[in-house]
Nucleic acid binder design. Structure first.
Length: 117
DNA sequence: GGTTTGACCATAA
DNA sequence: CTTATGGCCAAAC
């Protein structure tokens, strides 16, 4: 099951990112750096963004991933930052105040070690 | 295996 | 407040 780096093989790191993004509940958001940190690489925020760029699975709520400022990072013309905003608004996420977005809607996944209390 | 790129982040001025 | 810069990481070429 080793992830070969074939053209059509899915990079394992991306998979972890996607898996974590899938766990973001509706109406919640996570940041690139946050995801990277939880995956063990606090400085790999860019790679997380890269993973999002390569996301093609409808299962992955890519729109729930924003930057540390609490805003949508997509500035590109090819993509659709407006769509991300619309999706978040549809889930009840108010993007008016970026700081408030982080404070109110940031999602922290449960720790993988709930045992021992 | 070096180079390039990027939907990032923190810091400095 | 905005702009600039360095850093860091993973993947594609």
């Amino acid at each position: 099951m080793a992830a070969h780096r074939g053209k059509y093989a899915t990079p394992s790191f991306y998979r972890r990112v996607w898996a974590m993004v899938r766990k973001i509940p509706r109406g919640k958001v996570m940041t690139y750096g946050q995801i990277a940190g939880l995956l063990g690489s606090p400085r790999a925020a860019r790679a997380v963004g890269y993973a999002m760029f390569n996301t093609q699975s409808p299962d992955v709520p890519w729109h729930r991933v924003i930057n540390a400022k609490g805003e949508i990072s997509i500035g590109g013309h090819l993509l659709r930052p407006d769509e991300q905003r619309a999706r978040l608004l549809a889930e009840g996420v108010d993007l008016a105040d970026p700081r408030q977005v982080i404070a109110r809607y940031r999602y922290w996944p449960p720790r993988p070690r709930p045992t021992k209390r």
